[in-house]
Design a protein around this nucleic acid. Sequence first.
DNA 1: CGATCCTTTGATATGTTTCAAGCTTAGTGG
DNA 2: CCACTAAGCTTGAAACATATCAAAGGATCG
Lengths: 270, 270
Amino acid sequence: MAERADALPPFLERSDTDFMGLSDSIERVIRRLETRRALSEEDRNAIRALPFTYRTLEASTYMVREGEPPQICTILLSGFAYRHKITEKGARQILSLHLPGEFLDLQNSMLEVADHNVQTLTRAEIAAVPVTALHRLVTEHPAVARAMWIDTLVDAAIFREWLVNVGRRDSHSRIAHLLCEFALRLEMAGLASHYRYELPMTQEQIADCTGLTPVHVNRVLKDLGRQGLISRERRSVAIANWEGLSHAGDFNSRYLHYEEGGPGEAALAS
Amino acid sequence: MAERADALPPFLERSDTDFMGLSDSIERVIRRLETRRALSEEDRNAIRALPFTYRTLEASTYMVREGEPPQICTILLSGFAYRHKITEKGARQILSLHLPGEFLDLQNSMLEVADHNVQTLTRAEIAAVPVTALHRLVTEHPAVARAMWIDTLVDAAIFREWLVNVGRRDSHSRIAHLLCEFALRLEMAGLASHYRYELPMTQEQIADCTGLTPVHVNRVLKDLGRQGLISRERRSVAIANWEGLSHAGDFNSRYLHYEEGGPGEAALAS
DNA sequence: CGATCCTTTGATATGTTTCAAGCTTAGTGG
DNA sequence: CCACTAAGCTTGAAACATATCAAAGGATCG
């Protein structure tokens, strides 16, 4: 995987000029799935043979809307995306964030009706796979189905951790936890060093991830800075003290289920 | 399925004197899975042939502990169970509730290490299936795997809804929502009329489901009663005004994914 | 029938929200 | 290249929902 040059170029440009070609992206997706379950060459070829439409989407584009039957399952090639739900009173809760290389909508695709929205966070490139093709793939290739199943289970594990975060941690911990998770996931995806990364979110979006208000998020971020745990400049976040931040956020990476192959907890050590 | 006599007998006795025999319970589990995905007779037989140990567990018994590799996957035959996580500061967040007839630990069983605890809420009867047997089953019977996959996706949908509940609804809505969900799920499982049921939880446990304190839960329950939405007597809850309660809780049953076969939203109508 | 767990209630404390305004940055078009 | 605009960030003051603390009253179980 192409090593990123460090620091400066802003997040969006990064996504625009994707270093990877399309087939490299697909290989990355396959590699990601394989960390969940061994695949045969035939399985891999079946994934490569998946019909799809390549598209570039602007930031904030809806890919799936709650209440609609999912038609396509998208693979995120570059850029970021998120799932969310909106309450009757108009409050938004962000349910999860997604990085390049992830299957975006297995959660909705295997069910009849989408129960939440999926939207791009930044400009993004996607491969849109018709759900019918996906269904055929998983029917004919049980090992792929198994890998995808496990992938969705890890998604569920992340939902659970977020539920704990929002339900039982105070505002400082919630945000610290979010920053730790994002750092580690970017690290694992080879997209950043966890000591410094571009946070592709506004403070309002951070608020919607953590069940807080944007104003309070602002104060907490400032606070975490004052405590020397992070330093910020624009949306660039540098974790100044991983030990401190992960302790503040009560962060334990177990729920990300990286045990096999990846750096996992080891990556945390300086 | 045996029709329950109405009203009086307290929850625990109900579970003790389970009307169903063991094989009836297994059939119920199969029927539940089949609502997710059609199974062949051979698939059904493979489930029936699953080796298991029958056990009765006291209330509050741990079945899986966070950090341990899951050894058994349990089918809940009678009684209730829940998943939870505990933060470093000792706060508990309940992640989900489980009713008789549900596979209890597909979430953990397919992964290497449990990331949360699973515990009985009441006294319960379970069938404990070794995970190795479960792995064999899903490898040899892709349709069963598919049904279980979808089952875990519905679990995930419930996690998401709870995340919205805890993140973006006020205390009244949260509790109203929980009461609605429980009513409908009990109804769908044929375990109660949604107008009256035994809530197998202490107010402290309700607090841990909703990210509140037990004291506040008490006040809110009293309030919901005052508003004429519910009436209570011990832990028996009667929903006096379904329309009102589901509106107060911003409750829409879509996330339970009952669309096929079951009463679903239709069950809500008086 | 004592002991324990659960529920209820009141008084007070506090974390977070709300409201409101000014400020900064990024993007756009003249 | 500057002015304009919209979006996001920052800050302060006041309000509010919920937590905390504390104690008494019920229920349940051995």
